[in-house]
Design a protein around this nucleic acid. Structure first.
Lengths: 332, 332
DNA sequence: AATAATTGCGCAAACGTTTGCACAATTATA
DNA sequence: TATAATTGTGCAAACGTTTGCGCAATTATT
């Protein structure tokens, strides 16, 4: 069995309270005693029980993070940002994914709750906010890229996609498609709204063949390319829900013998690291992933310390690379 | 404050023990009582305290996972495999990264220990196994892609790289370079050994200019391409520590006006999802990521249930795609 | 109708830690 | 030299659960 403070107390012939205090250099314990206890504790391989500490009213030095999916690099980058500031605050991360499944998400929130975590950050726009605020009634929470919550940090996704469309318009494109996330979430709705808005502002036509459901991943992008090429009027440019979708689309077009940006312009969203290394490199909207994570974590710690924070909306930046270019003369 | 079992007991005018039992449908509690307590508990928003449970000798339904880095998709895929079986066993994941820093890793192991986790899986070849086994004396641990440990699941990395070299040899390549991880870990040593072995078996020359330090990521691959092109005798093929490095290399070569596989053959390791979607698609050695994670987790749960397990060595499979081809006629 | 088994519930201890309070011994102040 | 302040340590309660044991009331067995 694990060695406890009592075991040390017995060996040292002092009371448990003295041991407890000596271990944390309590001012009322003599330096000699502190030394003696600490080396003894180390010898005996003592490891404090976080559970016992938690029970007497302390906080777990742990914050929970809920992400939709381990396979999306965007969230991983965000995680790195969160982890960075968590470590700076001497906290650990408890990470769980819920795979766009609200049931799983609730389970996760329950786990957070049972563990009495110090705080929680939830990523993604699919979140059962009601459940969250009920469960985490006394642990603060910060949401990333979700809007219906008091504490959030998000990028302006609608504006981002509008920028993408405007960029394509400025290159002369008139038939512009959108490949969506495929599941109905705020993120997708907002981006789609940005697409429609910009099109309307530019007085450009929409077409039901031009909005295709992807799946947020490479496979979905690939499949979307097939459908795009079967449209009654084939578009010349496509803006994608995210970079991974864009890469899938480019690959799909390539399989049909088309080149980007010669034959089609394709634009992504996220600016994943791979976006700069893909061939062609991806024009995209940069989400400041790591910054987003850092901001969320900073806000969370502020909340945990009783401060009040306000939501923050960041503007994504258009990164021009080689997947977009002027519209080709004509399409037969 | 959080509502406790005692609060429920008071409201229901029964003893805490009855509440505790009623909540888990103890056979000696009447069905009526169970119902009454359970609905009451739900109304009052009761959430059991894991800490208290842990204290009375139960296990945390949580396993710890230590990974080198959130930015490497390989580990993320592995995580998904682990998570899959963890959920099946009603356990949650506590994930931490240590960024190839042994000090951070120890901190992480300490955290695992303080939380009295049920078990631990550690990914990557850089692990302080001594520290781990001391700390986790009574919690079982499984290692992924590490060899000096009783319980491990790994792919044969040396054999994998040898396969890569053999493939290139069969295509007629004679000057074959290796881009390493850059930091000295078992994984890198093994892959490098596989490279040397295969070269020797094939009676091919080595050259100090042909082994270049990368960083395991895209940036390192890009930089490596520059150095490769400056070699006294420029190689015709390059085998890379992993897929991300390979993508970086291809991109670097591209920036210098060279095409793959026309001018150079490049081969990766991992078979990340992106490997099939990159242009050109990557020839690589498949590590069965998800399977690896699943296996590790299965072994861990077996250990937790007192079974004995043995280490497992999987053979990576060569996936031929479009980043390798026959050696070009001549290099000027 | 007496005994045995079963059913339903409460008591109290235990898990490992922290912390307010008390108390003795030492040292500083008047 | 008496009193006050300081220093070093121990007692015991508390945190929220679980669980072995005991006991009464009910039901089943002869």
């Amino acid at each position: 069995m694990k060695v406890s403070i009592k075991d040390i107390a017995k060996r040292a012939e002092v009371s448990p309270s003295t041991v407890s205090r000596a271990l944390k250099n309590h001012p009322r314990i003599s330096a000699a005693m502190c030394d003696r206890i600490q080396t003894l504790a180390h010898e005996m391989g003592y490891v404090p029980s976080e559970a016992a500490r938690l029970l007497v009213g302390q906080q777990t030095p742990t914050i929970g993070v809920a992400i939709p999916d381990f396979s999306d690099p965007f969230y991983m980058n965000m995680l790195m940002g969160i982890e960075e500031v968590a470590i700076a605050h001497q906290h650990e991360l408890f990470v769980g994914s819920f795979n766009q499944d609200l049931h799983r998400q609730r389970k996760l929130f329950d786990a957070f709750d049972q563990k009495r975590l110090a705080g929680v950050v939830v990523a993604g726009s699919l979140v059962d906010a009601a459940y969250l605020s009920r469960a985490q009634a006394n642990a603060p929470a910060v949401l990333v890229n979700h809007y219906d919550y008091p504490h959030a940090v998000a990028v302006d996704q609608k504006r981002g996609i509008s920028k993408a469309v405007n960029h394509l318009v400025s290159l002369g494109h008139q038939r512009i498609a959108y490949v969506s996330l495929g599941t109905t979430t705020d993120s997708d709705s907002l981006r789609y709204a940005g697409y429609l808005d910009a099109l309307e502002t530019a007085n450009l036509p929409t077409h039901s063949d031009w909005v295709i459901a992807g799946d947020g991943g490479l496979q979905g992008g690939l499949a979307a390319a097939d459908k795009l090429l079967q449209a009654t009027a084939v578009p010349t440019a496509v803006v994608c829900y995210n970079d991974r979708t864009a890469i899938g689309v480019i690959n799909g077009l390539h399989q049909h013998g088309y080149a980007v940006p010669t034959d089609f312009s394709v634009i992504g969203f996220d600016d994943l690291e791979i976006a700069g290394y893909f061939l062609p490199s991806l024009t995209t909207l940069r989400q400041p992933h790591i910054h987003l994570g850092r901001q969320a974590a900073e806000k969370l710690f502020a909340l945990m310390h009783g401060a009040t924070v306000q939501a923050e909306l960041l503007e994504p930046e258009l990164i021009r690379r080689n997947s977009t270019g002027p519209v080709r003369a004509t399409m037969d």
